[in-house]
């Protein structure tokens, strides 16, 4: 038996969330596998309020219950996000799996999260108390834990509308489909007036949380391509020192060398 609530509206969902110990459920591709007979679920996957993709001046808002398949079909969703999402599971899983679920599951292996981290995405969290918008990076505390209050729900993911045209994405799985990431890597690069304004690199599935090192990125910010080229060996060395990775289905050493290879290759594609 599955015990749970099927709220008719977001308001009702928030009321249940505030009053009961429930696990938010949107898609359930992980929760089904980790089925807990003693748990109560809050089925929010069909709430219309959470299934929208909208835009404002600065952000694309992807509702927490938007599925990966829906996002892949939407012209507003950036190509970088599509590159990552298209490699998740297999069609049936992408039909069910949602953006909110991928974030809320708090796994460093979640394939949409490195993109969100590299893109400086934000999360809008809501509760009966109101709402707050947090940086995706600060949302995670460590393996399996995050900053979602017991009465809160993830409402939407906010992706910047601009600055995501130059991107790089790679996933290393044990096979070509239905594979949990062993390494994932997303990077975003931008320039204004011949100066590098963004060189974000996010490493997924290699540690307790998705990794990003803003202080190392700063080595390239404000520089010209030629200067960045000169800086490249020191930049790669710095990552080599900072990437302290965990062993999993593959060794920590393998993860590290592949991460550095991908980082270097991404610079190459950006002309550095």
């Amino acid at each position: 038996m599955v015990n749970g609530y099927v709220p008719a509206s977001l308001q009702e969902a928030l009321e249940i969330r505030a009053g009961q110990d429930v696990i938010p459920y949107a898609g359930g591709t992980d929760l089904m596998v980790k089925r807990r007979p003693d748990a109560q679920y809050l089925f929010i996957g069909r709430l219309p309020e959470l299934r929208q993709i909208t835009e404002d001046e600065n952000y694309i808002h992807i509702g927490a219950a938007v599925t990966f398949t829906e996002a892949l079909a939407d012209p507003r969703v950036p190509a970088l996000m599509k590159a990552a999402v298209s490699r998740i599971g297999a069609p049936a899983i992408r039909n069910a799996g949602t953006f909110g679920g991928n974030v809320g599951n708090a796994s460093a292996k979640a394939d949409s999260v490195p993109v969100e981290v590299a893109a400086d995405a934000k999360l809008r969290l809501i509760s009966l108390r109101g709402e707050r918008v947090v940086e995706i990076e600060s949302f995670y505390h460590g393996h399996g834990t995050h900053d979602l209050g017991p009465d809160e729900l993830i409402a939407e993911i906010l992706l910047p509308r601009t600055g995501l045209d130059h991107w790089y994405y790679e996933k290393v799985g044990g096979r070509s489909a239905l594979a949990i990431s062993r390494i994932s890597f997303a990077s975003v690069f931008d320039m204004q007036e011949d100066r590098i304004t963004k060189a974000a690199a996010a490493f997924g599935a290699v540690s307790d949380t998705v990794l990003r090192f803003r202080d190392l990125e700063a080595m390239l910010i404000g520089r010209s391509v030629a200067e960045a080229k000169d800086m490249k060996p020191a930049y790669l060395r710095a990552y080599d020192e900072r990437l302290q990775l965990t062993e999993g289905r593959v060794s920590a050493q393998y993860r590290k060398r592949v991460c550095l290879n991908l980082l270097e290759d991404s610079l190459r594609t950006f002309g550095i």
Partner: peptide, 15 residues
């Protein structure tokens, strides 16, 4: 070790 289908990977048609 790895006695589950998320660890023991058999090829899919995609492979």
């Amino acid at each position: 070790r790895g006695a589950s289908f998320s660890d023991y990977l058999i090829p899919t048609a995609m492979d």
